[in-house]
Simulated scan of single mutants.
Amino acid sequence: MIADFESYLDQIDNVANRERVRTVLNWVQTTFPQLEQRYAWNQPMFTDHGTFIIGFSVAKPHMGFAPESEGMAHFAEQIAAAGYNPGKKFGRIKWTQAVDYDLLKQIIKYNIDDKIDCATFWRR
């Protein structure tokens, strides 16, 4: 299902972390089947009609999710309540933390709806 991302996943040394990222990516594709997979800027991401919706990355202590700064700002309280470490354009989920799929679903749906008429990759 996420064939485009397998080479990325293969680079994640920790097997448990690799499977966790695979699970999240599969969940996104299953929950939002209209989204297209894209691998760019060394990260798997999902787009809708050519516009960026969300991207994911990994680091030693966490998995990152990037909904652009607009998505981070809109969901700042929920991201903080989930205990995730927020940045301006992305959030960090420690490998020891649970993935809040309901929150991810809200963030992705927000970006899809907010960018319905967006004709560029990034918001302007």
Rank of each mutant, 00 (worst) to 15 (best):
M1A: 06
M1W: 01
A3D: 14
F5V: 12
F5S: 10
S7K: 11
S7G: 06
S7H: 11
S7C: 04
L9V: 02
L9W: 11
L9K: 07
D10H: 05
D10F: 07
D13Q: 07
V15W: 06
N17M: 04
R18G: 10
R18K: 15
R18P: 10
E19V: 06
R22D: 15
V24K: 14
W27M: 00
Q29Y: 01
Q29F: 00
Q29S: 05
T30P: 01
T30Q: 11
T31I: 01
T31L: 00
F32K: 00
F32V: 03
P33W: 06
Q34E: 11
Q34R: 04
Q34N: 03
Q34Y: 04
E36Y: 03
Q37P: 02
Q37A: 09
Y39I: 13
A40I: 06
W41G: 01
W41A: 00
W41E: 05
N42I: 00
N42A: 08
P44K: 11
P44E: 10
P44M: 14
M45C: 12
F46S: 10
F46H: 09
D48M: 11
D48C: 09
G50F: 15
F52Q: 11
I53Y: 12
I54V: 15
G55Q: 10
G55D: 07
F56G: 05
S57Q: 10
V58G: 05
V58K: 08
V58D: 11
A59G: 01
A59C: 03
A59W: 04
K60E: 04
K60F: 08
K60Q: 00
K60G: 01
P61N: 00
H62T: 00
H62S: 03
M63V: 04
G64P: 01
G64D: 02
F65G: 04
A66L: 06
E68H: 09
E68N: 07
E70T: 08
G71K: 07
M72L: 15
H74F: 12
H74Q: 14
H74G: 04
F75C: 04
E77I: 00
E77L: 00
Q78G: 02
I79W: 04
I79M: 08
A80N: 05
A80C: 00
A82Q: 01
G83F: 07
G83R: 02
G83D: 07
Y84S: 03
P86N: 06
P86V: 01
P86L: 06
P86D: 02
K88S: 06
K88I: 07
K89L: 08
K89V: 05
F90D: 06
G91A: 09
K94G: 08
W95L: 03
Q97M: 10
A98F: 07
V99C: 12
D100C: 07
L103W: 14
L103E: 13
L104K: 15
Q106T: 05
I107A: 09
I107P: 11
I107G: 07
I108H: 12
I108N: 13
I108M: 11
I108A: 12
K109T: 13
K109H: 09
N111Y: 02
I112H: 07
I112A: 09
I112M: 15
D113Q: 00
D114F: 14
D114P: 06
K115P: 09
K115Y: 10
I116W: 08
D117A: 09
C118Q: 15
T120M: 12
T120G: 08
F121W: 15
F121K: 11
W122F: 12
R123L: 12
